[in-house]
Structure formats: structure tokens, C-alpha cells
Simulated assay, not measured.
Amino acid sequence: MEDTGSTAEAKTTAEDGNLQMSDRLLKSTKPLHRFVRMEPRSLGIVILLFGCAEILMGFQLHLAGEHGRTSLDMYAPFWQGVLFVVCGNLSIYTGLHPSKKMVTVSLSMYVVSLLGIFVSGGYRISCLSYFSYMRYRASHRTDPGWAHFRVDLLFGIEGMLFTSSLCVLVLLMVLIVVARLALKSTRTQVILHQSLPPGTHTTSN
């Protein structure tokens, strides 16, 4: 009787080991875990930092009382910074708790932020062109004074914000491609296990 109990316990332990091995195999090949292997948390932290910097620069422009032709006219630093912060937080949360639903939500926010970058980027390009023209006019003056310094300062700020938007654009495109591939690969893997009931013995010829 003791031999039968020990044999059944050994079989149960072996089956549990096989199930754990199968779970590890499924987790390693599941498309969502391929998305996690691309380190969305690290990219999310970078996007989050860019978003915070965007909002802070927007506050600086607002407190400085700049009412000229800047991206503050369309409040781009604020709403774009908020989009970056949301995307960064979603990437961090999805990396910690991967699921198909969270990847879908993150992908939607990535696309919205990408469209926002195109809108703000187009307006910032026009602002940079305007500042270049103003710098050209100020350089031909005998005493440019404060106006020339102000134009240079605004040109540097808008150029920095435009460059940071381009960096986030690249990161978002990488995340969009990875998330789309993770959602596209929805094949379900099935592993069949054949286990004999206790007391069943196989005979060999």
C-alpha cells in the first residue's frame, strides 16, 4: 500500500512539474510577453520624462508672458505633454501587467500622440521659419538689442521642443510596431498531456 501511495505521489509531482514547464513555455512564446521583452517600461520612462519637460517649458513660456508666435498659441506644450505622460504611464503599467486589453489601450494612445506630434510639429516648423526670418532682419540692424536676444531665446526653446518631439516620435513608432505585432499574433497554442490513471499499467510484448 505504501508503494502504491508513493507511486501515485511521484506521478502527481511529475504531472505538476510538466504543467509548470508548459506554463513557462507558453509564457515565453506568448506574443504579449514578446512585447514585454522589448522593455516598454524603459521606453515609457523616457517618454514620461519628455512629457514632464514639455509641460514645464510650457509653464515657463506662459509665465514669461510670451504672446508672440509660439507653440503656446495652440497650447501645444500642455496637451502634448499630457499625452506623453499618459503614454509613458501606460507603457510602464503594461510592462508590469501585460494583457491584451492594456496593449490595445496603449496602442490607441500611441496613435493619438503620434497624430498630436504631427500637428504640433507642423506648427513649430512654421514658428521656426518665422524666427529665422526675424533673426535675419535683426542681424541687419545696427543695434539689435533685446529683440534679437528674445528671438534667439524663443528659437532655441521651440527648436528644443521640436527635437524632443522627434525623439518621442521614434520611440512611439517602435512601440506601435511592437504592440501591433503582439496583437496580430493571436494564435492559441494547445499542448496535450496524456496521463494514465493510478493503477493502470502498460504491458510490453
Rank of each mutant, 00 (worst) to 15 (best):
F78V: 03
I45P: 00
D23V: 04
E66V: 15
M38P: 00
K11Q: 15
E15C: 05
H201E: 12
V190A: 04
S132N: 14
L61Y: 01
L154F: 15
F155A: 14
Q20K: 13
M173D: 07
L114T: 10
K30Q: 06
L43P: 00
Q194A: 11
F35T: 03
T29H: 08
P98S: 07
S129C: 08
T188H: 10
S164I: 03
H33K: 05
G68N: 10
T188N: 04
K27T: 01
I47W: 01
P144W: 01
H193C: 06
G88C: 02
I176M: 14
S126P: 00
S113E: 05
D152C: 14
L128M: 14
H201C: 04
H97V: 08
S71C: 07
F84A: 12
V190W: 08
T186F: 03
K11N: 15
Y93G: 00
L26F: 12
F78L: 13
G116Q: 02
T200A: 11
S204T: 15
A179Y: 09
K184C: 07
T104C: 02
F35K: 05
A8M: 13
R135T: 02
L43C: 06
A138T: 13
E39F: 05
F35P: 01
G68M: 03
L196H: 02
M102E: 10
V86K: 09
A76P: 00
L114G: 04
R180W: 04
I117E: 09
L56P: 00
V151Y: 02
I47R: 01
G58K: 04
T203I: 15
S28F: 10
R137M: 08
M57D: 05
T12P: 00
G116T: 02
D73N: 03
T70G: 03
L183P: 08
L72P: 01
M102H: 11
G51H: 02
I157S: 08
L72Q: 05
G58H: 01
R137F: 01
P31K: 10
S113F: 11
G116R: 03
M1Q: 06
K11D: 15
T203E: 06
P144E: 09
A179I: 02
G68F: 10
Q60H: 13
A179T: 02
H201G: 03
N205A: 11
Y136F: 07
V190T: 14
G81E: 09
W79P: 06
H140K: 15
